[in-house]
Computed example of a mutant assay.
Amino acid sequence: MSSSFLGASAQSLFKVNHGPYLQEVTRDGATIVFTTSQKAFSWIELKEHGAVETEAVKHFSSKDGLKEAWNTFNAVRVEDLKPGTSYDYRVVSKEMRSFEPYKVVFGDSLATEWHTFSTVNPKKQGGTFFITSDMHFDAVKLEKLLHAAAYQTCDAFFYVGDMTSYIAEPEAPFTSFIDTSVKLFASSIPFEVVRGNHETRGNLARTYSSYFPKRDGKIYGSYLLGDVMIVMLDSGEDKAENHWVYAGLTDYDAYRTEQAEWLKKLVKTEAYKKAKYRIVLSHFPMVMGQEWKDEHAWYGWEDAIRKFLPVLNKAKVDLMVSGHTHRFFFHERNADGNAFPVLEQGADSAVRLELHDGKIWFKVVDVDGKVLLEMNIS
């Protein structure tokens, strides 16, 4: 990512140091996230693709009548856009060297290069998606998997949990996977994140969702990409609430119940019913093979299955992709109470999922590009 300085000295260190990256791109809006190296006042300039620079409109993040300022983390929502339309945007920022009640001193200013993205086209049919999980801080492995799955031809990207091992430093999500995503695609194509159980750990775990802002404030949700419905579930922690490791600070039983009630309503909506393809993403697979039941007692995982699986089994799900187990394994329909196929995509592999002409095809690849499984499940 490059930034051009407007009146900046050669010695200035003021820059956009993470991002910009796209989140929650819909048919009529998008959120652009970025950080600056020093506290600043920042905004987005946006125009339709190909329009002259003078037609760009400024978009600010504001709350209670005040524009966000004197901050380093920024999430700017732009709305009232046209469906299926390409837009150009750039970040503009003014360093703030002091912010007194009646005197503000600005420093250097910068503007990034222009980036292009497209809003969701409601008439789009199918798509090609990249899915992985369980990178556990390994950005190098993530980059290898993106290349192995030919990320350049993917329409959307999904990370299904445990991209980190815990959140104890503000930089952790950036260095683990966000920066790599920005380097390759995320300034122009969004990625969406499903939280894993490891991202609930660490003294900064409660900040995790702020890196991926949503208008409804929820981590879980659904996304309609043309005729593809993506359902993203947050399965929480894998042990019981009273397990010593949580120190009495978790409340996932109630959280999973909340999601189950939301899921019951979602599958009754016209948007869900009319979707041609229905893909569910969850860090915990909604299948627990006998080998896990014999060796482990995973209360949280079992609770997720108890609450989510009965709803999903009646919802005409085409495929679930999950992580957590660190193994690559494919569960056929009805293997263990599941009415839909479940793919555990593994910690050293990624999925390239293609939905076209009513057919569902996927390929699982490892870091060396070796194909572990190639299957048509339509």
Score class of each variant (00 low, 15 high):
residue 6 L to G: 07
residue 11 Q to P: 02
residue 25 V to P: 00
residue 28 D to A: 10
residue 293 K to R: 11
residue 175 T to P: 07
residue 83 P to S: 11
residue 285 P to C: 05
residue 251 D to V: 11
residue 71 N to A: 14
residue 160 V to D: 01
residue 47 K to L: 14
residue 211 Y to N: 13
residue 346 G to W: 01
residue 221 G to P: 00
residue 238 D to P: 05
residue 75 A to S: 14
residue 28 D to P: 05
residue 349 S to C: 06
residue 258 E to H: 12
residue 54 T to F: 08
residue 21 Y to D: 04
residue 62 S to N: 14
residue 230 I to G: 01
residue 308 F to E: 00
residue 225 L to I: 02
residue 274 K to M: 12
residue 329 F to A: 06
residue 101 P to R: 09
residue 296 H to T: 13
residue 112 T to Q: 05
residue 56 A to N: 06
residue 158 F to W: 02
residue 374 E to G: 04
residue 355 L to P: 02
residue 336 D to W: 06
residue 208 Y to L: 13
residue 366 D to H: 06
residue 249 L to V: 14
residue 297 A to E: 14
residue 48 E to V: 10
residue 250 T to S: 09
residue 69 A to K: 13
residue 18 H to F: 05
residue 120 V to F: 02
residue 67 K to Q: 11
residue 33 V to G: 02
residue 284 F to L: 08
residue 353 L to M: 10
residue 268 K to I: 08
residue 313 N to T: 14
residue 214 K to D: 02
residue 109 S to A: 15
residue 339 A to W: 00
residue 159 Y to G: 04
residue 105 V to S: 11
residue 317 V to E: 00
residue 243 H to V: 11
residue 337 G to M: 10
residue 216 D to G: 04
residue 243 H to T: 15
residue 51 A to Q: 09
residue 303 D to S: 12
residue 202 G to C: 10
